[in-house]
Design a protein around this nucleic acid. Structure first.
Lengths: 193, 193
DNA sequence: GTCTATAATTCGATAGAC
DNA sequence: GTCTATCGAATTATAGAC
């Protein structure tokens, strides 16, 4: 039995794979899907471009691996009901700032159908599931989640992609103070007639 | 004097130019900047690709001409103060639905720096100017405009780009009812301490 | 004004030596 | 596992005939 004969082959080339993924996320986040080239990603990771193909099969396969993402939403039932909006904005802001994967996904979703599909899945599944914790009307739950997504993605789009000066310059805490009531109403507000 | 010797040369080739711009807007809106090729645009407009270059110089020049846009914001001082949010959402929704130029700009802004710059200009100039009609604090005015942009662009991004099902399926009137209070607060609400 | 032909790049992907 | 060499396709852009 080899020293590393465990279940899922802990190869020593895992470091290379990780370096590729890190470089890929950076490039996809900075340039979008089309402009991010396998050659450039390989150069950033200081490996040969053909290794990227060997490990991930194709550019789409690489993106799929690099864009794996979990929103890590907290259990909303354990949050004081009046602070739902605040907790959610703060969580999303921290998630956007701390992991460029979401920016890569956001930028790629604009032009790449597969990335858009992945984005739909993340928000339809993870966010809708979190919102479904309170409220039984499925259509209404989906609508609430969609509205929350519209504000959260708009925040990300204006702050990280288009970089509108007022949205870039404003401190996170002040953004939270402005936007929290919006999410609070989308989550718990009375639906319009 | 030729029959059409007026001020700004009303050439008969203007029809061709218009057809090119229309096809360009469609392609840029559907595919984004990189995937929209001059060849495909020319094919849509049923002309030779070289004519596009002759008329607009380069792909960037074509995009710059096709992405010319005016939000046509109404004078907000003549709107009942309590209905500001509603008027604004409704106006934006109609503007998005009726003119694919904004979708083209939105999609291209994700990957093309020039398009992002144009987007910044449109929202920083036109929207900020409209918001400046009430309120004298310039920093606060810019922030209000940025927040409005974040929600409006998020609405467009989720509805027209990512196409989140709940945002696509919901009728415009209901979207207005949900989102109007958000814009109302961003425009007229008391700033957080 | 319109079109053909092609230059000059660049990219994703493959084949195969070592 | 890693790298060299290269294919084949697609792109923007240009030159020049008609």
């Amino acid at each position: 039995m080899t020293p590393s004969a465990q279940s899922a082959q802990p190869r020593r080339s895992d470091a290379t794979r990780a370096a590729i993924l890190r470089a890929a996320r950076e490039r996809f986040a900075a340039d979008g899907y089309e402009r991010a080239t396998i050659r450039a990603i390989a150069a950033d990771a200081q490996i040969d471009p053909s290794m990227v193909m060997r490990y991930y099969g194709s550019k789409e396969g690489l993106f799929a691996a690099a864009a794996e993402f979990d929103l890590r939403l907290p259990d909303l039932t354990s949050v004081p009901p009046a602070r739902l909006g605040e907790v959610l904005v703060r969580h999303f802001l921290a998630r956007w700032e701390g992991d460029e994967t979401l920016v890569a996904l956001l930028r790629a979703a604009s032009t790449n159908p597969g990335a858009a599909e992945r984005m739909r899945g993340i928000f339809a599944d993870q966010l809708t599931a979190a919102v479904a914790a309170f409220g039984t009307d499925r259509a209404l739950t989906a609508r609430r989640a969609g509205l929350v997504a519209s504000q959260v993605l708009g925040l990300a789009f204006t702050r990280y992609i288009v970089r509108l000066p007022p949205m870039v310059d404003t401190a996170p805490d002040e953004l939270v103070a402005w936007i929290a009531p919006t999410l609070q109403r989308y989550l718990t507000g009375t639906p319009p007639s």
